[in-house]
Nucleic acid binder design. Structure first.
Lengths: 195, 195, 195, 195
DNA sequence: CATGAATGAGTTTTCATTCAT
DNA sequence: CATGAATGAAAACTCATTCAT
């Protein structure tokens, strides 16, 4: 890689980092390209040199971000074979990345189709892990004989709900997930466990 | 009512109808006042004669709509004392009003505080009804000893999730709620029922 | 005068009264025709039945008002033959009508030519009275040999200045004229008097 | 300075020039941003690139203009120690800048507080200079023992009056100040001088 | 490759005036 | 004669995108 290409990569990464920060602050829908550029201390036009449209930038940034995030969460969850630990690990993770995920939860329906598809695909991998654990639990006769897919939809929808309503539910700078994690885990386990 | 008042009411209703149609098509946030006016074939200024601001128009529509809707659903649900019938009635209802509710599910986090408050208040009344039924079920020892509030959050979050992701989940002009209602009901009942 | 004409006159007077009140509150330039109508509790269109345009209304109202006002002030001033009493009488009068005159002082340059002409004509009559008194004072060798017209321009300009800057100079609901009257009278007399 | 910066400065100056011309023609209050843009042959949006709001543009123009103007007048007046020369210098100056000052005289009461404050502050510096000269004149026993502040208010109010009524008083494209300068100077001197 | 000035279509809202009732 | 709903031409301001430098 020559110097020029390297420099280009640097700028590119700078834009991605800055855009993520803006995104976390106000969501992508309300972030303007001018704002990103000014916060990254680059020219407004430079942004369009790297990303032809605002939409392409959104896609890139979220894809990047979620790839990393997914890697992490998969590594973490892979080590957990029982549903209780998996839940804890996942909610810990969501709590740490809550700034990002609450924006995502709110804005997902407004993203361009392709992007939403990618995000949901990544989510599906995690969902799948939980579904497997549940299936095994059912097979071991520890869990009720429910549709694992549906059960996980209940769980993820609830987390999504809290995340998207973060403004309302959280007080001060507290975490929504932190606030509700114990109740959610407890109830979910009660619901699926036998006896 | 004289002809003038009648005519005014007509225009008002025309605006409300047209705006509702626009909102269902593109959401409240992306619909412009100019678009509503042109689709209603009235002058742009006329819209502001009837509704001082775009926000007031949105509130009016949703408030109107949700009042009717809430009345209906309360009447329907009031007659149901067991959770299974209540679920059926409620999902039937959501299915019929799905066009509106899917927009609402997506956009709720972006509405002005006051409006979001009103909507959530109305929802709370319905949630409460379900919570009561569940409490009674628990007391009669038919349902597991779970936190009714949490259980209902699971249910409503899931419905909200399907509604907000309608574009993705539904095929053709089919209803999302219709598509998932049986699975949702079945799983939810399985989860909360004893034995 | 039949009943219809009488009624029309009533409405006309009502509009004039109400418009004057609005005018005093916010000036004519910032008063809307809709506002006048609503405050008069008549239909917006009725206003245009009596006064074809907003401009015509302004002209009418100020003309009416200033005619009365002028009659009063002429009667009052006519009785005063020395400059000191005339000044006191005039400033007392301005203080009482300050609400109206401060708006006029500010907005006069923006009024339609014909109206401004009428207003200035009325003012000229009063100015003339002062000029006469000064002339006599000069003839009696009590006052310096100055151009009476210019002297009166100095006086009226100053009063106009205080009136137009009322917002800045007056504190609370106090009167600007009241606040400065003694200084103005004292200085003006010092300036024109001999010795 | 590179070509870009230069070009930007050009556009900025073009806007300022054009806006000043518009303002002189119709006043600040009645000039629209669209009009300035079209007269400057730039896009409407470009104007807001250089000046965030119309108010900022007005402030910028007046501040610029008045700074220059004040510097000039202070230099000129500073050299004059007797009231007569100071008056001549000041009126010459007003005559040259009459286009701008007559708009200012009319519109001042309608400007936003901050702007009006700045303008009055600048004026106060000049008023103060005159007051000093008068004080010294009084001390040297050449002028009557009057309140210098009041005397200067009489003078400035009169100039303000002529400026604001320019449309009426001036004939053709003649200057109002030019028309009245001799009379004003003469009368003012007569009024304040002893003997 | 980077810049950032310029664009222009779009946004909500206001208001004097008209005209069918 | 009175009504008041309807009009439509403004108004100030925003923002993703382009292109000459």
């Amino acid at each position: 890689m020559n110097k020029r290409t390297e420099q280009k990569q640097n700028t590119r990464q700078l834009i991605l980092r800055t855009a993520k920060a803006c995104f976390i602050d106000k969501g992508f829908l309300e972030t303007t390209t001018a704002e990103i550029a000014s916060r990254a201390e680059i020219a407004h036009g430079t942004l369009f040199l790297h990303f032809k449209t605002k939409e392409i930038l959104i896609v890139e940034i979220l894809d990047n971000e979620l790839e990393q995030v997914n890697d992490k969460i998969q590594t973490l969850i892979a080590r957990t074979a029982d549903i209780s630990s998996a839940l804890k690990v996942y909610l810990d993770f969501l709590e740490r990345e809550e700034d990002l995920f609450s924006v995502l939860a709110r804005e997902l329906p407004f993203y361009p189709d392709a992007l939403r598809g990618k995000i949901l695909f990544r989510e599906a991998i995690i969902r799948n892990h939980f579904q497997q654990i549940i299936k095994e639990g059912i097979n071991r006769d520890e869990l009720r004989d429910i549709d694992p897919i549906q059960a996980i939809t209940f769980l993820f929808s609830t987390l999504n709900y809290y995340l998207s309503m973060r403004k309302i539910f959280r007080e001060e700078q507290e975490s929504v997930i932190g606030k509700f994690r114990d109740k959610v885990i407890k109830t979910f386990l009660q619901l699926i466990e036998k006896g």
